[in-house]
Structures are given as C-alpha cells and as structure tokens.
C-alpha cells in the first residue's frame, strides 16, 4: 500500500520533467554542440573541425578550444553590417506586419461570431502548402515579366515592367506575406477577448472612436502586439530562404552569411560562431519582453 503514494509522487514529478527533457535533448544539447564547434578550428577532415572529442585526451581537447572565430567576427565588419542589416530588415518587416496584421485581426475579432472560426482557418490555410513553394510563387509574381507587372500594365497603371524582384522591397513583401499568420493570430486572440462595452464607455465619456482606438484598444491589445511582434521579429532576423530567393546580392542578412560560411566555405566553426551571435542578438529582445511583462504583472497583481 505504501508503494502507491510513491508511484504517484514519481508520476507527479515526471510530468513537469517532460518539457525539460524535451528542451534538454532538442535544444540544450545541440546548443552545446554548436557552442563547442564555434570554439574549434576548421580542418580539412571529417568532421571539418578539430579538436574532436576524445575520452583518452580530455586535457588536449579543452586546450584546443579558443575564441578565434569570435575574434574574427569582430575584426571583419561584414558580420557587423550583416547583423545590423538583418535587425533593420526584421524591424521594418515587423512594423509592416503590424500595419497589415492589425486591421485584419481587428476585422476578424469584430466579425459575427459564427464566421470567426472560419476566418481563423483561412488565416492558417497557407500553411497547408510548402513554405518554399509559396516563396517561389512570389518570384513568379514579382519578376519583371511576372504577374504583378502584367496586372498593372493591363490596368494601365504602369508602362515599364516593375523591377522589384531581387531588391529589399521583395524581401519585405516576402516576409510580410509569410509571417502574417504569426502576427494576426496573437493579435486576434487579445482583440477578441476585449470587452466592447469599454469602447462604449469611452464613447460615452466623450472620446470619439478614432481617439478611443489609441487610448483603449491599442493599450489593451499590447500583449498581443508584443507577442506577435516577437513571433515575427525573431525568426525574421535569422531568415535565410526569403532573402535568398527574393532579395538581391546586396541584401545582406546574417542568416545568408551563416549559410554561405557553412556550405560554401565549409567553415563550420565560423558558421557556428555566427549562429551563437544570432542567438545572443535574439535573446536580448526576449529578456526585455519578459522584464516588461514581469513589471506589468507586479504593478497589477
């Protein structure tokens, strides 16, 4: 009979262990491997770096690790420019996503209740096709003799073919298109919960609708705005496929740099160092967000 509570305690202890185990196996361990590679030197070998971990020579293994790759990252301003440009592109894209996503989420939250689940399904629908194919489709739309040019010339709006493909504009279009659901869904979730009588109360107290939008709707949607922005900003900084397919050679992004270090130069250690750098860049906004959130909760328990 005493076994039972023990088994139960064990089970109770195991349940929270599941997410930790998952994170440990699929995040922490790979991260440590990448970290280790970033501290190694490139080598013409299999695998293409050294030292390789060896139980018989642990001291030699650790002495073979150094920060050379990170020093290189600070010396060559290519990486700095690529990082800056990635953050800039991601930030502008996130702003554009907010601009496009907010009205969509607002319209969905205001739609009659029976249509809402259909609208949510429609927002998710693009995920049913491959991401890569959808981005390729944009190549066909944006290229000089593509669908967009044809449509606009057909309407008589332009006479020259549009030269959008392989520019930063194309990258913005691609990111906004691909990431829109990640912006719309968290926004929708907060806007849908909002109590309509708050807007009526604001109206009643003398605030015209356009002013209530800024004083009531936006502040109350802030958790959704922050969540959506982070969900878009973070992957956009490291985005590789969209700038590679839609961007030009001058579209500098850290994800692309990482790819070329990895596959073109076969410099795994340097590529790993870039990956670690990217991670550090992205940890900053997450920490800020958590801090803001914690302070907000503290002010309002």
């Amino acid at each position: 009979m005493t076994e039972r509570p023990f088994a139960r305690r064990l089970a109770a202890g195991l349940v929270p262990a599941v997410p930790y185990l998952w994170l440990g196996v699929f995040f922490l361990v790979p991260f440590l491997i990448v970290l280790k590679i970033s501290l190694s030197d490139p080598a013409v070998a299999q695998p293409p770096y050294k030292p390789v971990f060896d139980w018989s020579d642990i001291a030699g293994f650790f002495s073979g690790l150094d920060l050379e790759n990170f020093e290189l990252l600070t010396q060559d301003d290519l990486y700095f420019r690529a990082t800056l440009s990635s953050v800039r592109i991601a930030a502008i894209s996130t702003a554009l996503l907010l601009l496009v996503g907010f009205p969509i989420a607002y319209g969905m939250a205001r739609a009659p209740e029976r249509y809402r689940s259909l609208l949510v399904a429609l927002v998710i629908l693009p995920f049913w096709t491959s991401f890569l194919i959808r981005i390729y489709a944009w190549v066909a739309i944006l290229k000089p003799e593509g669908l967009l040019t044809q449509a606009l010339t057909g309407l008589g709006l332009i006479s020259e073919p549009l030269d959008i493909l392989n520019t930063e504009t194309a990258v913005f279009i691609g990111i906004v298109y691909a990431y829109l659901p990640f912006m719309v869904l968290p926004l929708y979730a907060t806007l849908e919960k909002m109590d309509d009588t708050l807007l009526e109360a604001a109206l009643d107290l003398g605030s015209p609708p356009w002013r209530s939008f800024w004083t009531i709707t936006v502040p109350l949607a802030m958790p959704g705005i922050i969540a959506g922005s982070l969900l878009c900003f973070i992957p956009a900084v490291g985005e590789f496929v969209i700038p590679d397919l839609l961007g030009g050679s001058e579209t500098l992004m850290i994800g692309r740099q990482l790819w070329s270090e990895f596959f073109s130069n076969r410099d795994w250690p340097l590529a790993s160092a870039v990956a670690i750098l990217l991670l550090i860049i992205l940890v900053v906004p997450i920490v800020i967000y958590r801090d803001v959130e914690a302070r907000r909760l503290e002010a309002r328990p």
Binding site: D195, T197, L198, E200, A201, A202, L203, D204, L205, G206, S207, P208, I216, P219, L220, M222
Partner: peptide
Amino acid sequence: PPYRRPVNMMFQSCALFPH
C-alpha cells in the same frame, strides 16, 4: 453622437478601463 451628449452612463458591467 454619444461623445457629444451631456449624458453619462454607469454601465452594468462597470466597464472600467483595466489598464
């Protein structure tokens, strides 16, 4: 419009601004 009427309302749900 409601925002120009010299009439104010106390709502059943209070409708206090939570933020």
